[in-house]
């Protein structure tokens, strides 16, 4: 069943978002990666995931908040179809760290899509990144951290709307960044945020 529903839903997501995928200084690869992107719409995870080439898609899981994706049967179904890794934002504690969970889930083959802003930005201005990306990079320095800039999807489906307006959008994937030795958390997160912002002009 999933062999049919996944490609069909992915195709619908691509048509609705009119997404162009651009690889700038980066090539599609099946190696383990963390795609980190700006977050402006509920569609972000689905569209980015759908736009990736099929073989990469099969190895990639979007990370999203449980409170949204468990709300209602359709969202719950979508979460299973797109293989979303759900994180409970309210129960983040030291012994229940989502970072450990992510590392456990990806093992030695899978990649992740994360939105380090923590929530959707409403004003259009990108928020400061949460520290998760830093801890992830520290615990698994072998992962390629790939910046992704998603443009115009907030107009396709803004916050609080449930019907999409199928405008065209653009997803730009840039060159990987790494955590340098001795780099502080603030410096690294600023660097990551700038890497995403830079793709806007690329």
């Amino acid at each position: 069943m999933k062999q049919i529903t996944v490609p069909v839903l992915a195709a619908i997501a691509k048509i609705l978002s009119g997404a162009t995928l651009r690889w700038v200084d980066c090539e599609p690869d099946t190696c383990q990666r963390i795609y980190f992107a700006n977050h402006t719409s509920h569609l972000d995870a689905l569209v980015l995931w759908s736009s990736l080439p099929k073989n990469i898609r099969a190895l990639t899981r979007p990370v999203a908040a449980v409170d949204y994706w468990q709300g209602g049967p359709i969202r719950r179904y979508m979460a299973t179809v797109f293989d979303v890794l759900l994180i409970d934002r309210k129960k983040i504690k030291v012994h229940n760290s989502p970072i450990d969970m992510m590392i456990r889930e990806i093992g030695n083959s899978k990649s992740l899509i994360v939105f380090p802003e923590g929530g959707r930005n409403v004003t259009g201005e990108m928020r400061e990144f949460k520290s998760g990306l830093f801890h992830l990079a520290k615990k698994r320095p072998d992962l390629e951290l790939i910046p992704v800039y998603i443009d115009n999807l907030n107009r396709v489906m803004p916050k609080g709307e449930f019907l999409p307006v199928p405008l065209l959008s653009c997803i730009t994937i840039g060159a990987p960044i790494f955590l340098e030795s001795g780099e502080s958390k603030a410096v690294f997160l600023g660097k990551a945020r700038n890497a995403v912002l830079k793709l806007k002009e690329a």
């Binding site: 009119g18 162009t20 651009r22 443009d151 115009n152 065209l168 959008s169 653009c170 730009t172 002009e201």
Partner: peptide
Amino acid sequence: DHGTLVMGH
């Protein structure tokens, strides 16, 4: 603005 939105199409 130098949009890249419609460019790919």
